[in-house]
Design a protein around this nucleic acid. Structure first.
Lengths: 171, 171
DNA sequence: TCGCTTCTGCAAATCATTTGCAATAAGGAT
DNA sequence: ATCCTTATTGCAAATGATTTGCAGAAGCGA
């Protein structure tokens, strides 16, 4: 899949953006999925799962611990680390380490996307460009390689007086 | 520059690759540049500069220390860290942290490029795609942002029986 | 050569993350 | 509801990469 693209095709549009997943319908919840993978559903895991599901801001581990501790003050940071790693291992979440920061977490959606990081606020915006995806595969092929993964992060600042299209409220 | 591209232009080619810089003529040496920036040229700095200039394999800090220590066994790891940071601060080198590894170093060439990492060997191949550069700027713009930086890394494995074009020896 | 700084080596400190271990708690079986 | 086995937790210590405080060493302009 995606292997036999025609590198000389004329792309109808340069990029196709999609909505961030907090605007998309929720799928199964993390806690249930955790159980389905044969793991015990402990109180801590339930809380961490809830925190991650409720978060739409790509929080880092410390922040997830902070939010979890607000519900159960006894929860240990190492439990958060262990639980998040376990969620990642069974594919329920993804972690991304942006430039010089801690790992940040998002619930897996199954749909691949890349990230734009607002350097003024740290806010993360998800996007997807099939054109870029194709170019990456093609570049690897030209260099004699088969693409197995990639990392694309855009660091940017807001254009003054120009609200982000995906955030703009109708009025 | 690069600001007013036409996103609907038909690109003559999908990507333009360039040769890795070890195939390009050397520019001024790091040691001299260090002095020109008002820093003292110590024996350790000269050695580290030589090691970095001679390296064309994106070594990490430990490896640079290893190579430097082969010349002067007394050189401290912290000196390597401090010197590399100083070189980076004045723009003589660039460091990149690829997935889950230590920071790797390359001499700055002034020409922007991205990286393909051979996941079987860790080898790094530099490439540049103006098409991707343009798309990135355009995507950021559509999201209401002005691109200030980016990170693009391709992780890939060699296609068997297919030598990398830029490495293929004439015969 | 002198003297003023900048540097270096060493060890200790940070920062993010992982891990050993004894105590605790899931959850299937009774 | 109670037991029992085994996974999981909290805590503290360990790790790995990188940074930093400090006293002694070494550039380099005078």
């Amino acid at each position: 899949m995606g292997e036999n693209v025609n590198p000389h095709a004329h792309f109808a549009s340069i990029c196709e953006l999609h909505l961030p997943d907090h605007l998309m319908p929720e799928t199964a919840n993390l806690a249930d999925l955790c159980r389905k993978h044969g793991r015990r559903l402990t109180g801590q895991r339930r809380i961490i799962a809830d925190v991650v599901s409720a978060a739409h801001d790509h929080p880092d581990v410390i922040e997830i611990h902070r939010r979890a501790a607000a519900i159960d003050p006894g929860i240990a940071l190492s439990t958060v680390y262990r639980t998040l790693r376990m969620f990642a291992d069974i594919g329920l979440i993804e972690t991304h380490t942006f430039e010089g920061g801690r790992a940040r977490v998002e619930q897996a959606t199954g749909e691949h996307h890349d990230h734009l990081i607002d350097i003024t606020t740290g806010k993360v915006i998800e996007f997807r460009s099939d054109a870029i995806e194709r170019l990456q595969t093609e570049i690897a092929r030209r260099l004699g390689y088969r693409l197995t993964g990639h990392r694309l992060e855009l660091y940017a600042e807001p254009i003054p007086g120009r609200a982000s299209p995906v955030r703009r409220k109708a009025r």
